[in-house]
Simulated scan of single mutants.
Amino acid sequence: MFRTAKTALAALASTFTALLALQVQAAAAPAAAATQQRQDLLLSVRGEGRPVLMIPGLNSAASVWDETCTRLQPGVRCLMVQLPGFAGQAPLASPEGFLEQIKGQLQTLLKQEAPQGATVVGHSLGGVLGLMLAADNAGASVRQLVVVDSLPFLPGIQNPAATVEQVKPMAEGMRTGMRNAPSEGLRAQLTPMMAGMTRAPERVETLVQWGLASDRPTTAQAMYELWTTDLRPLLPRIQVPTTVLGSWAAYERMGSTQASTRAIFARQYAGLPGLDLQMSAQGYHFLMWDDASLVLGAVKKALAAN
Rank of each mutant, 00 (worst) to 15 (best):
A302W: 10
A140F: 04
A26E: 04
R46L: 01
L131D: 10
S260L: 09
G297P: 08
L234R: 11
M174F: 14
K168E: 09
Q158W: 02
V45W: 01
T219A: 03
N137P: 08
T15I: 07
L245V: 11
F98A: 09
A188G: 00
L19H: 01
A292M: 10
R3Y: 05
M194N: 14
L186Q: 03
L272S: 00
I238R: 01
L20S: 12
S247H: 11
A21T: 11
A188C: 01
T108E: 14
G88N: 05
P95S: 03
W289D: 15
Y269A: 09
A195W: 08
E172R: 06
S280L: 07
E67Y: 03
G127V: 03
D149W: 13
L79S: 07
E48P: 03
V299E: 12
I55P: 04
R267P: 12
Y284N: 12
G173E: 09
G255V: 01
Q239L: 11
A195P: 05
G246P: 05
L109Y: 13
G57E: 10
L131K: 10
A33V: 08
G196N: 15
A281G: 10
T198A: 10
Y251M: 13
R199F: 06
L303D: 01
M194H: 11
K301A: 14
G75S: 01
P84E: 03
V128R: 11
M193H: 07
A162H: 14
I55T: 08
L125V: 05
L58A: 08
L190D: 01
A135C: 04
L190V: 00
A200S: 14
A10E: 13
A135H: 05
V244I: 06
V204H: 15
G97K: 03
Q116E: 13
A18R: 02
L109V: 15
L296D: 11
A29L: 13
Q116V: 00
T176F: 09
L207A: 06
T70K: 09
V167H: 12
T261E: 14
P91I: 08
L19S: 08
V299N: 06
L43Y: 01
T242S: 07
P273G: 10
A250Q: 10
G122N: 11
E172A: 14
Q282K: 13
D215E: 06
A259C: 02
T243I: 05
T108R: 12
K6N: 01
A270W: 03
T68M: 09
C78K: 05
A305G: 09
D290C: 09
L186G: 01
L234K: 10
A33Q: 15
A140I: 04
S63A: 15
M193S: 11
W248R: 05
A10M: 03
